[in-house]
Nucleic acid binder design. Structure first.
Lengths: 217, 217, 217, 217
DNA sequence: TATGAATGAGTCTTCATTCAT
DNA sequence: TATGAATGAAGACTCATTCAT
């Protein structure tokens, strides 16, 4: 007769612990989609299935939520990655290709890719976040790639180069890819111009081999 | 008795004609610096030296002003450039270097470089502008570069390639450069990591020659 | 099987009964300190060591709590006092001094002194409370003092006077004292200007003897 | 046929200079009547005949408006008064009566009398204002009265006394009068208990002559 | 009875836009 | 044409109150 308590009240039963995550997820989507300023806190709350007031139970302010979005989505990917590459067996060219694939899988092809656009768009208004991103993402990321290039140079696979600079020739198109995807990419005309995976491979090939005609070949 | 119209203050006349331009200039600076949403029309008017009301004499709305900023700063550079390159005498590698230098001089190192950040940041909220930008800038720009690559391939200077794709390997770092400059670049830690001119040359060299060790050389 | 009610934790029992009192006490302190509007019910609950929800178990609303604060702290002092003064043996001047001392001891120098400030501050918003205070405090208070003055007049100790009015010359500075203490008194500059006990005596003396120079003395 | 331009548009013609005053006036009334917290800025604006936004054109915040209310209504009465009393010819008793009458006329019987209630009620939340009031009103006010008492003592009209303290015996009932008027006074039961002018005179008389029966008289 | 997560009406404040001058 | 005072809709945030547990 009495209803089984296991199936009742879907409304309030969600645990306090789940809320911040749900809100951050909703905020990420909305912020990426519409920008920080153009996103209403009501919308974020609504998309997370709670009321406006609830949002402020977990985040002191809209800015605070923004910071949480950035922080939470900048997972500690790098430690694991660094470890993985320490024991990599193949050639440095293969290593570079692999690193890029990994990145595409775990970041570029993920909602988190929208973060870059967010950070870039709002860096001036949130210097604190810019600095955080610089330290937590840019530096580890470039560091990892640089170590691959360095390995290639040391093993005679790559020419001598200033790795601290050529790193950006590799990274820049990845950033571009993400920015594109989350802005112009939505525009019909620009939609399918670029196929990311294909582009990444082509780009790495280009960088490795150059596009000049080979005289001796 | 009435003053001949030739008699009227030429300064004020010129002033009147110059108003929209001054406003657009002020708006560009502010929009780039703070983002569209975070810029108040009062600020724009103040920086242009007019009152808030005057701004609305020339632009129907803040959005309208935004569109004008984009439109006005996307000069018809391309027709002239296209013409210039039609008669270019040197090698295609030189041509590529030259094109990049030109770009850096006329766009990259110019306040207009901030436009890219603006367009990227607000593309979702202003699809109209994204489309406009796509048509007026992206397509002509990639077209121009593509024609250089094509020339190189045809003249046997470059390897065979899908120029419609490799074009992005050249462009992406330029976009990245501008975005960086107008966002993270302001952050102390990231300030002087990248020297643009130097980076551009190195990047083109890398693309031309690749970074793999040359076996026969 | 069920524990005899006598068995249940006497502490929790007493606790339960004590709750409203603890809440009222906490509310008094906070209301006096910060004003009614500026006090959050969370704070009251926290200071009373219970949760916000519990507060609403005992009081229908914040206003209801406010009324309880006033009511509970306007103890039935007067019946006891009236009795005490009926059998007072000394002179009416002594009686006046004694009444004032008693008041200082039981009200003026007590947290309850803050109530006056509360009532005065919120009287317009809570007419009901103003009326209650008028009937329960003002009238008995003035009545008691008036009876002392009357006694003095009847016994030839005091001059003839309209006691219903001169009563306020005695009371007003007491009210002032409490208001001062709970508002300006917190301000550093005004902190120690007035010593209450000393002032009370001086004031009563002044009222009894006047400050004019005595011709015949 | 055309309406005379002199009679048109009653809406927007009010001068900028008049606005702050009108707003402060409206705010004084409302703050006194309902308290600072219980007053909505919309109400203030409405009573001043402008929109909510206009209020914030002249005052940075509700708090700022509050401070303006206090400041603007604490006229520099004292310099003028001090001057007036320097040349006073009569007895010190007369002087005291005169001072009190003057006060009643210019402050006590004026909307500004509500300020005392405001300051007292909000002193804890606005320590800055408490200090300001202490310095600009309390000190000059007590100073002026003290000088009258001093004059009386020096001329042998008053007994020797600690004027710094007896001053409060004079002032306190005035404060009380104003507080009463603006709080309990609104309550029907307490309405007409006290007639201010009558009370003031009686009080000064009492203080001058005391209420004890004069033996030799 | 006690909790504290959730609510949403209510408040201050901002700012694009209007309009009388 | 130019001004800038005025507007009011909209947004972030607060907090008394509710209610499932």
């Amino acid at each position: 007769m009495a209803p089984s308590s296991a199936e009742t009240s879907p409304k309030r039963e969600r645990r306090k612990e789940a809320r911040p995550g749900e809100l951050v997820k909703a905020a990420l989507d909305l912020f990426v989609e519409k920008g920080f300023a153009a996103t209403r806190v009501d919308e974020v709350a609504a998309r997370a299935g709670v009321s406006k007031g609830t949002l402020f139970l977990y985040f002191e302010s809209k800015e605070d939520l923004f910071k949480a979005v950035i922080r939470d989505n900048i997972a500690n990917l790098f430690p694991a990655w660094n470890e993985e590459f320490k024991t990599f067996g193949g050639s440095s060219a293969e290593m570079l290709h692999y690193a890029m694939d990994l990145w595409w899988l775990n970041v570029g092809n993920t909602p988190a890719s929208g973060i870059v656009k967010l950070v870039i768009s709002e860096a001036q208004n949130f210097p604190e976040i810019a600095a955080f991103y610089q330290k937590e993402v840019v530096e580890p990321g470039t560091g990892l790639l640089q170590s691959i290039l360095q390995r290639g140079v040391e093993r005679g696979e790559f020419q001598h180069m200033d790795t601290s600079k050529s790193v950006f020739s590799i990274i820049a198109p990845m950033i571009f890819l993400m920015m594109w995807k989350h802005s112009m990419g939505a525009c019909a005309a620009s939609a399918n111009i670029i196929d990311p995976k294909e582009f990444i491979h082509m780009h790495v090939d280009l960088l490795l081999n150059g596009m000049s005609a080979k005289k001796t070949q």
